[in-house]
Design a protein around this nucleic acid. Structure first.
Lengths: 116, 116
DNA sequence: TGGTGACATCGACCACTGTCAATGCAACAT
DNA sequence: ATGTTGCATTGACAGTGGTCGATGTCACCA
């Protein structure tokens, strides 16, 4: 066979497989990593869960400090991270600050995940 | 109305809304946070993307070092994190180590996310 | 006006993480 | 046997992140 001499050449480059579709861009990877990093903390996941399960789908800090077993400054810090990342929204009513889930925020990051 | 005297009591506790459904457990939050933390890195997201886009849906380290612009030990470290977290599987064939996506791993964590 | 309660911010500490150079190891070629 | 190549591991370093006490700020009440 005349193709016999070509095969070794192909074998040498066998470790490097070509790409069959586009990959995620570096900027897109940075953004998605930032969004995921905001969720990748047990305290913040529990905060989201408690807010979502609360009556009226909203809760204030006083509702959240005790079940988490963390100090008030720490809970405030986590809530700020979640608000800055777009997962929660904050509304101040009188003395209390109420937090609500931003609709669709979890679904959108979950959808981005499966298309990586 | 005889219920008039009860209302102020209700108002005093107005900041504390009751829960309408179960919240995520602390252990479950820990597990999910660990899974998300493994994904919450730009380099690891790009690794997953490149592996998924590679011919045969697998790639070796030599395919991954150059496009990421990171050193070989760093890429190996990230790949180990992804394997330990169940997103990639590693198969050694001769000199090369091939990495493949674990089917359904991304979908399952995405599904867990929207049910928090 | 002074006091109190709810929340945010600051400063500091400690643990963790991403990164790389150096090294180790195993498979292959010569 | 010796060298080479692909990859993993180690050790060290700098940067980041979670936590809390102390403090600041604002709304409300007496």
């Amino acid at each position: 066979m005349t193709t016999r001499e070509l095969l070794p050449v192909i074998d040498v480059t066998a470790c490097c497989s070509p790409l069959t579709r586009d990959t995620i861009s570096a900027d897109h990877a940075d953004d998605l990593a930032r969004s995921l990093k905001a969720l990748a903390d047990p305290a913040r996941l529990r905060l989201i869960s408690i807010v979502a399960a609360s009556d009226g789908a909203e809760a204030c800090v006083c509702d959240l400090t005790e079940p988490l077993g963390l100090s008030q400054p720490t809970v405030s810090h986590h809530l700020k991270v979640l608000v800055d990342s777009g997962y929660l929204e904050r509304e101040k009513r009188g003395t209390w600050a109420y937090f609500r889930l931003v609709p669709g925020s979890l679904d959108s990051v979950a959808h981005l995940l499966v298309t990586v």
